[in-house]
Every structure is written in structure tokens, then in C-alpha cells.
Nucleic acid binder design. Structure first.
Lengths: 215, 215
DNA sequence: GTCATTACTAGTACAGTGTGCTAGTCTCGC
DNA sequence: GCGAGACTAGCACACTGTACTAGTAATGAC
């Protein structure tokens, strides 16, 4: 019998499920473009693939759970407070929010490394299945931007004409996301200094475009 | 055509490369979301994976070649002629031009490689001196876009109010360039397939924004 | 108490993926 | 002839997701 150990450890101090989720989240933090392969997550969590598959029968289930967990933690920036400062034009506020997002992205030292690793991925064609983590996180970010756009657009439409028929906040958010991606990429390219001066102009054009979709 | 057969068949009636490409194109026609796995394409083309890999060392090369072949059906030069096709809305024409530019950029493997290597540079701070080539090429592209914008904007301002005070074509071109950069980058990231559907929407927002700078 | 049902863990097996590698064939220039 | 290079074929490796079985621990019924 021996029973030399494990008396308290026997009953999972942290549940296996928790360990799996936190391992997956850590991997996603290391590399947002990670595929979150079942085996890799299980190994990092220190459990077997069988255990993992008991809680998450399919990879999709795992990814959904991880993204949901991350989404639950999402804190609200102080930038958000500027969102409702109605003393300033809506476009200016949106530009501020975008500028803040851009600044955060550029300030992150590892951002460029992650972008590079994503681009250097061996098979970056990747089926949509493999891209699921990336897409899910992207959707999360876009949802936040879409929230800003919806708020500001409703407000703008309020003090002008009724307008804004069939306004598509998702398309606007996606558009703004693309603009930010472009700015981040350009900033990682040579000659960044001479381009930085144009950021505000570009952001203003983009913000104006999204907030004046009436017509 | 009496002699309907086989005289030239002895020596690869259709080159292996052609067969591979047409097989891949056929598979893409069957299912636009097909993954185009190396083995599946080789089997459908009736060649071995080794042969396929001789012509297309990597899956990326294969897909690029297929996309390029499909894209080649519609040459770019005629896009320019569409610039002055006043029967169509200016925004539509600008979207077409941008779409063509984007397509060319995506089909160009060396463009991706350059983007990757530029981002991989350890300290990409790089003085503006070193960045001279990059900036020169960029200026060239932006000048072309600025030309389009100027032409189309002048036309649009013509049939509406005088407007367009202090219109800045350079800022608009730079903005459009950033959008294109963003799209190219996103397309190199995982999940590109599911994002491609939004390209037109994003380009249309951008084009509209640039061409309606009056106020 | 015993015992059965359930929850969980571990590990293996299979089919599929991209890519590296070697060995063979074939054709062309000398 | 014959050597060099283009081409072809196929296997091996390291991955991937998932199905599957076997074993262990906890829980509840009786």
C-alpha cells in the first residue's frame, strides 16, 4: 500500500478543467495566432488528451470555452469614459478611442513579434478550423469597436437628421479594424518615423467615414 | 480534324504543371472553401506528391499559382481604362481600382516575403536614411492612387456643388494605402478565407470616404 | 456495510496534414 | 557515349483531430 503521498493532492486542488483552460489562455497570450492543438494544450496543462476530451469533446468546444473565459475577464478601459463625453464631437471621441487602441498596440513590445510569427506560420493558409482561435479573438475586439460605433453613431444621428438607414456597425467596426491593422503594419516597416505624422489624419478620415454613413 | 489523337501525347500532352493547376482549379470550383491539400491535388491530377512538390515546393506556392492563374484571366490594364468610364459612379470605379491593386498585391508572393522580412528585422526603427528605398516605392504607389483620387474627385465635385475646399488628395491616397496594407496583412493572417468576404465592403467604405470629403 | 453507476483519467489507434528526403527515369547538349 | 539537369515517384517524419478502450476514483442506492 505504501500510500506515501497525495492525501490532499488527490482531489484536484485546481480542477482539471480549470488547468486546461488556463493553459490554453496562456498559450493564446504567448501567441494569439496559436492553433491550440489538443495535444499541446493537454501537455501544457499536464493532463492527457483523454482527460481533455472528456471536458471538451471537440477542439471547437475547447476554443469556444477559452474565448468565453477570456471575454468574461475583459476589463473596461478608462478610455471608455471619454466615449460619453458629449461636450466633444463624436468624431473626435472616436478618433481618441482609436488612437488609444493604436497606442496600446504599438506600445506592446511583443506585438511585432507576434505579428511576425503569425505571418511566418508555416501553413498560414490554414483551414478555418485551425484559424478558429484567431477569428474568435478578432471577433471579440471587433465587438468592442462596434459598440463604440453604435453608441456614437446613434448619438450623431440624433442631433442631425434622422438618416442612418440600415447602418451596419459591424461593417464599420471591421473597416476600422482593418485601418488599425494597416497602421500597425506600416509602423513596423522601415520609415515609420516619417509616417507617424499622418496617423491622426488617417484616423480622422476613417472615423468620419464610419460616423457619416447617412445619405 | 481527322487525326484526333495521341501524336503529341507521348511527351506530356499537357504538362504536369498544367495538370496540377487545372486539377486544383477544378477542386476550387467544386468547393470554393477547399483546403487544397497537397495529396488531394496530386491525386486528382494523377501525379505523385513528389512531382507536385517539384513544381510547387510548398503548399503556399501551389495556392499562389492557382490564384495567380485565375487572376490572370482578367488583366489589370483594363482596370485603368475603367477609370474614365463616366457611365459608372466614381465610387464604384475607385473600388474597382483598389480591388485590382489588392488582388495584385495578394498574388505577389515576393510582396508577402518582403513584408515578412521587413517585420522580422530585429530593430526596425531604421533611420529614415536606410528606409529610403521603401519610402520611394511607397511614394510611387501613393502617387498613382492620388492620381485616381484627384481625377475622380474633381469629376464628382463637378456635377455636384463646387465644394471640395482644400481637398487633400495625398492624405486620401495615404489613407487608402493604409487600408490596403491592412487588408494585405489580415489576409496573411490565419482565417484569411473567412475574411475575404468583407473586402468589398471595406473598400467601398474607404472609397466613399475619400470621394466625399466635401462637407 | 456492499455494490453499481457515474465521473473522470490515461493511453493508444487511425486517418489525415505539410514537408524533407532519396532514388530512379528521362531528355537534352556536348 | 555520357554527363548534367529536369522531372517523377514514393517513403519517412512530425504533426494534426478524433474515436476508442481500459482503468481509477467518487457518489449514491440499497
Amino acid at each position: 500500500m505504501t500510500e506515501e503521498v497525495t492525501v490532499p493532492e488527490r482531489q484536484t486542488p485546481v480542477s482539471t478543467r480549470e488547468r486546461i483552460l488556463s493553459a490554453a489562455a496562456a498559450m493564446l497570450a504567448d501567441d494569439p495566432a496559436a492553433t491550440l492543438s489538443v495535444r499541446a494544450v493537454a501537455q501544457r496543462a499536464g493532463v492527457s488528451t483523454g482527460s481533455l476530451r472528456h471536458f471538451f469533446p471537440t477542439q471547437r468546444d475547447l476554443i469556444d470555452a477559452v474565448v468565453a473565459a477570456i471575454a468574461a475577464i475583459q476589463p473596461t478601459d478608462e478610455l471608455e469614459s471619454a466615449l460619453h463625453d458629449t461636450t466633444r464631437p463624436a468624431v473626435e471621441r472616436l478618433v481618441d478611442l482609436l488612437r488609444g487602441t493604436l497606442r496600446d498596440a504599438l506600445a506592446d513590445e511583443s506585438a511585432r513579434a507576434r505579428l511576425r510569427s503569425a505571418l511566418a506560420a508555416p501553413s498560414s493558409i490554414a483551414t478555418d478550423e485551425q484559424a478558429a482561435p484567431t477569428l474568435a479573438l478578432e471577433r471579440l475586439a471587433l465587438r468592442q469597436i462596434a459598440g463604440w460605433v453604435t453608441t456614437l453613431h446613434a448619438e450623431a444621428a440624433d442631433d442631425s437628421d434622422t438618416g442612418a438607414l440600415q447602418f451596419d456597425a459591424d461593417a464599420g467596426a471591421r473597416f476600422l479594424g482593418t485601418v488599425l491593422t494597416g497602421l500597425v503594419t506600416e509602423q513596423a516597416l522601415p520609415g515609420a518615423l516619417s509616417r507617424a505624422a499622418f496617423h491622426d489624419g488617417t484616423l480622422r478620415i476613417a472615423a468620419t467615414a464610419v460616423l457619416s454613413t447617412r445619405r
